[in-house]
Amino acid sequence: MNKSATSLLFVGLLATAVPVAKAQKAASEAEAVQQTVTAFFDGMRRGDSTAVRRTLAPAAVFHGFGGKPGQPPTLEIESINGFLKAVGTPHPAVWDERVTFERVLIDANLASVWAPYEFYLGSKFSHCGYDSFQLVKLADGWKIAHIIDTRRKEKCK
């Protein structure tokens, strides 16, 4: 093979390798984001507020969006410390939020997760909705900076 054909082959291989490497990095970052969200819910299921706290960025914010049937929805700010205290306080039934990762978007150190969920108290269905997570990549990995969710009892799977 002559020198110019070898050079063209090498350039062609590099051109195909770069997109593959970027796709692999994007997939591994998406997996890392999902692992953080999964760790949040695993900690919640175990009643382990310390494990849940490890998934949160400093100054994280929680919002809930919902309301009573027949009334306009309301946006509520939830206390992180109150949530963590509730998670860590023994309760009769396991808090089991089952999410499906519908979409994970990442740009540099910012990620957004869109995830439908069903919430169970033990084995009893409670409510459903969508979780929207905003995560940031800090020195120690992906952390949840914001959670907002919808909550309803009807029109669930």
Rank of each mutant, 00 (worst) to 15 (best):
N109P: 00
Y120H: 13
F101I: 12
W95T: 12
G88F: 01
W114K: 13
E118F: 05
L110Y: 07
F119R: 05
D96C: 10
P116E: 01
W114M: 06
V104D: 01
L105E: 14
E102Y: 11
D107G: 09
Y120A: 07
W95I: 06
V94D: 02
E118P: 03
P90D: 02
L105I: 08
E97F: 09
R98M: 04
A93K: 15
V99L: 15
W95D: 12
T100E: 07
A93C: 00
Y117A: 08
V94K: 15
G88Q: 07
E102G: 14
F119T: 10
V94G: 00
Y120K: 09
G88T: 14
R98T: 11
I106K: 05
F101S: 04
L105M: 10
G88I: 01
R103S: 13
P90Q: 03
V94E: 12
A86Y: 10
V104F: 00
V99K: 02
W114Q: 10
P90K: 15
W114A: 04
G88S: 09
F101K: 06
E118Y: 07
V113F: 02
V113Q: 02
Y117E: 07
A108H: 13
F101H: 08
R98E: 03
F101L: 01
E97H: 07
V104G: 05
A86Q: 13
G88R: 06
N109H: 11
E118S: 12
A108M: 05
V87K: 02
S112I: 15
H91N: 14
A108L: 01
A115I: 08
R103H: 10
P116H: 04
W114F: 12
